[in-house]
């Protein structure tokens, strides 16, 4: 039994924005897989709901004429997994989507909900960080595009203004073309678990060197992060085993994991360094490269 006071199904994004503006206490519900958990815990914040579940405007994955990829915020993880566009161009997102919860959750949970929920462990977040994703945020005053790295304000806090809705996620061609990625989720279980550490790598190679390297982590800090030091340290590095050691040695300077009852800082650091190597190696394999 949930203590829901109002629940209004919006017929369009515009209507959802108006409903949010009319009732400042109202919150959006998409797949509901985070919202219903909070309601079950008795959290009063979600007693007024504006429902955007299944809105056609928010659904769909497409490649624009300029090759920009656009993923509707209402895309479920199952849809993401089954999408040819994602499989072909950004399989790192297939890795991430496939690691979420279990089949039932993936059938309803949306990528937009995952991002807007604002937690560091969100499995789609660190891959989108590594892809330099842009978020399309539509509000009463129109639409703005924000790099995902600027969207996260703190644990559970994101940059959504009054009445604002995340409508789509955009990946620009320069960020994914000729780039290869891999998402490595480390959790205590293979399914139905939140990441202890999530590691996303996106890279480009040319002539035996690493020409572009983007490394992002979930749960290595209060919000998902990019590892700028490690990235800088290895850009242009030859594809030798020393590359992995270099990444592992630098990445500890980028991250800020904490001790909680779920895992100690030492444990997380250990996993972070190891995953940085393993995910990079996997991405290189996808790029058809071998370290020698």
């Amino acid at each position: 039994m949930f203590n829901i006071e109002t629940h209004i199904k919006a017929g369009s994004v515009q209507e959802a924005i108006s409903l949010l503006m009319e009732n400042p206490n109202a919150r959006l519900i998409a797949g509901g897989t985070d919202v219903l958990i909070k309601l079950r815990e008795g959290k009063p914040a979600f007693r007024h709901l504006v429902d955007i579940h299944g809105l056609a405007e928010l659904n769909g994955i497409e490649k624009l004429p300029d090759n920009t990829l656009v993923i509707g915020s209402g895309t479920t993880f199952t849809q993401a997994i089954e999408s040819d566009i994602i499989q072909t161009h950004i399989p790192i997102l297939t890795d991430a989507a496939g690691s979420v919860g279990g089949p039932q959750i993936r059938n309803v949970a949306t990528i937009g909900g995952n991002i807007c929920n604002g937690v560091t462990s969100a499995d789609s977040a660190s891959p989108l960080f590594s892809l330099n994703a842009l978020l399309s945020l539509q509000g009463p005053d129109g639409t703005r595009h924000l790099p995902i790295a600027d969207f996260y304000k703190g644990p559970g806090r994101v940059d959504l203004g009054p009445g604002e809705i995340l409508t789509a996620i955009r990946i620009r061609p320069e960020d994914y073309e000729q780039a290869f990625g891999y998402y490595y989720k480390y959790a205590m279980r293979n399914a139905m678990d939140i990441a202890t550490i999530g590691c996303a790598v996106c890279l480009k190679t040319s002539g035996g060197t690493l020409t572009d390297y983007r490394l992002a982590f979930g749960v290595a800090g209060p919000v998902p992060i990019r590892c700028r030091e490690a990235e800088k340290a290895v850009k242009g590095h030859p594809l030798t085993p020393a590359l992995l050691e270099k990444i592992a040695a630098t990445v500890v300077r980028d991250v800020n994991p904490r001790t909680s009852w779920r895992a100690s800082k030492e444990f997380r650091l250990n996993i972070i360094t190891e995953l940085s190597k393993r995910a990079t190696k996997k991405a290189l394999t996808r790029a058809g490269e071998e370290l020698s």
Partner: peptide, 16 residues
């Protein structure tokens, strides 16, 4: 008790 729920109590899933 920190983990009296099936998320944090790591009962294996079939995939484990």
């Amino acid at each position: 008790v920190y983990n009296n729920n099936l998320l944090d109590y790591k009962f294996p899933t079939f995939t484990d």
